[in-house]
Design a protein around this nucleic acid. Structure first.
Lengths: 212, 212
DNA sequence: GTCTATATGCGGATAGAC
DNA sequence: GTCTATCCGCATATAGAC
């Protein structure tokens, strides 16, 4: 079941918490605020989640699960290397900037608020996701289409993609789809050349702004 | 005066606070912890800084000032475009991953803890720094050496560079200097081609790891 | 400048009624 | 499942002695 379709009480709580955690940060969000946003009182929240941290961990684990699913699904639809890599970029950005924005952002930026054991679990899952990127990148490196330091290639690409969460604002002319194409072009130029259609370049990204 | 040489009481407090803010996050660091790390009690801290937030704001403002100075200084030493861009990448990473690591990381990741007016001030300074990147990028675009969507080029490059703070660990075989060369190569391949010396590629970045 | 002592409020979490 | 009421600790910040 997809989170967006999850009408259960639990799902609603998680999405509300994720939204507040993203907007104000985990530490600055009180359980009372979360409860209030849900129209309940703080005591009721603890019927569903034993601790505030359990709420955070669950948001993050579902976030990793979602992006992993999304990218795997995107990969399943493509068989050629350039298309596969573009699909990864597109699915990563769609997860990060689309309907899952809250959970994804929390996962990327709030992991330091976790206790040691929870942090280890979440980061292990995140590592597993990032590992997905190695096969296509290694393949591209073998063909001479990206640098042979494939770990650095991955860190650079994921860094640029993840950082979009800091500046990209939705409801702009430049949608996620177009952004994905352009960043793919910038990050993997030699792969992009192999794509059939020539991508339009530099129509102007007026949408880029500093975070509010 | 450079922060690292600043032996004043105030400088020491700021560096101690920056270190703790980076390690544990602003909200999870109490003024008692900062005071303890300095061998004083929490009351004494408020003789030097009126509020905890003032401490945070000062750390950040000095962080922006340092990276701006560093990059400007790096630019001053080079006159040709490819060398200038490489200098920017190197100076940015040196500020972020070197001795200023604490203040820089705090500046990049803790700005959501600021009150609205303080946030506006800090982000305005950060914007001014990022604006420094536009001239070389625009120049390169005019020569056909980077994509013409120069704002996106900047966001992509700065994103990849800033994200290194999440995974790079010092005391590794791969120093900041080498990392800068390689990332320059990845982010600005056509500019890198114009550089005299051919950069070694893919010796293997065993140093890449997940954050602790 | 630094200390001790303390005001004051908000945080997460619990108990027990309904 | 949700409520009310409350415990208890820790947070920032202040007051005033030294």
């Amino acid at each position: 079941m997809d989170d967006a379709d999850d009408t259960s009480r639990r799902g609603l709580i998680l999405r509300t918490a994720a939204k507040l955690f993203r907007e104000h940060g985990y530490e600055r969000t009180s359980v009372r605020q979360i409860a209030e946003a849900l129209g309940m009182t703080s005591g009721s929240l603890f019927y569903h989640f034993a601790t505030k941290e359990e709420l955070l961990v669950t948001v993050m684990e579902e976030g990793v699960r979602d992006i992993m699913r999304g990218v795997q699904k995107g990969l399943a639809g493509e068989s050629c290397l350039p298309e596969r890599m573009l699909a990864m970029v597109r699915c990563h950005l769609t997860a990060l900037l689309g309907p899952k924005l809250d959970a994804m952002t929390v996962m990327l930026y709030e992991w330091r608020s976790l206790s040691e054991p929870a942090r280890a679990r979440v980061l292990t899952s995140r590592d597993a996701y990032e590992e997905l990127w190695m096969a296509p990148i290694d393949e591209a490196a073998a063909l001479g289409l990206v640098d042979t330091d494939t770990l650095l290639v991955r860190q650079t690409a994921l860094g640029a993609l993840n950082w979009t969460g800091q500046w990209y604002r939705p409801d702009r002319r430049v949608g996620v789809e177009l952004l994905a194409q352009r960043m793919f072009h910038l990050l993997f130029p030699r792969l992009a050349e192999r794509l059939g259609s020539v991508l339009p370049q530099g129509i102007g990204l007026e949408s880029v702004q500093t975070p509010a």
